[in-house]
Design a protein around this nucleic acid. Structure first.
Lengths: 154, 154
DNA sequence: CACTGTTCCTATCAATCAAGTAGGGAAAAC
DNA sequence: GTTTTCCCTACTTGATTGATAGGAACAGTG
């Protein structure tokens, strides 16, 4: 339920690389463009390179380039690269959370939440966010995304 | 994307209260039932009482009772009582996250995620989790919950 | 009413992890 | 060899998690 600063910065940096001329950008330019602390950003860019989402080039005229076209990099790819598992419960992946007794069915809620999040972030690419072609729907949940019987309030 | 220990413990404690005989349970019993550190749980129970979800009674035969029927308390109610805003970005509510330049549309992703989460947690009550009547659907996202054009991978 | 046992309530302190800072080292081009 | 840029490690700060101790309110009993 919380997006860390690392994840937020990583996405903004990837978008900035995708929008850069020649798709090449220096770390300092990315930091200035999106107001991200430079030294902190460097560690994030390292993770993105290790995950195979970025290529790096040292020296003059160096910088970072996308390893794949922006249409083939999803928001979920970036989030998993810097944050590991998408949904965690008490620091552990949502699948490995075990419950006992009356809380037995609580794990199913976290799995449903994880599935709902994946459905959004894995279907939204960097190109979608740049072109605005596939902007997510407004948050007003008029149609329930998960088949679920409506509870009766009183 | 992360469920804190506080939120997890709060839900398990509420379920344990709802399942207790007479719907009354002592803090020590809740801690033992769900393997929660007692002193940490006491702070959580205080938040739940301040939020109007629990009533407390001191002295012999004291303990905690639900302030409303378990059918009228949703998972979202409990999460908001102990964690404040449901979806946060860098510690701030998802709505107040502002983006500039190429990242302008990123806020829409967080709002869509927040809406998807709300659609699940606000429609699932404590009673649903106890009876298993409305268990969330499996996480395999075969049907996209948010209307969104499918991106072309390559 | 005083006493006693139970329970909730609060304040304080150590351990751990995210967030941000600082500085030196290594590759590429001129 | 100098400059530019990426690469890596160590450090500081603050929030979260968890443990400990003591105080305050309630109910029953003599």
């Amino acid at each position: 339920m919380h997006v860390s600063a690392r994840s937020d910065y990583a996405l903004r940096a990837m978008l900035s690389v995708a929008a850069a001329p020649e798709h090449l950008a220096k770390a300092a330019d990315l930091a200035a463009d999106q107001a991200i602390p430079l030294s902190f950003l460097q560690g994030i860019l390292l993770d993105l390179r290790r995950a195979g989402l970025l290529h790096s080039q040292r020296g003059v005229d160096g910088g970072y380039t996308l390893a794949r076209p922006s249409t083939a990099i999803s928001v979920g790819d970036v989030l998993r690269a810097v944050g590991g598992t998408l949904t965690t419960v008490r620091g552990l992946p949502a699948e490995s959370a075990t419950y006992h007794g009356v809380a037995a069915r609580l794990g199913g809620v976290w799995l449903a939440v994880n599935g709902a999040i994946e459905a959004i972030v894995d279907r939204t690419s960097l190109a979608d966010l740049l072109t605005g072609r596939s902007v997510p729907a407004p948050p007003a949940g008029t149609t329930p995304p998960v088949p679920m019987t409506k509870q009766e309030m009183e």
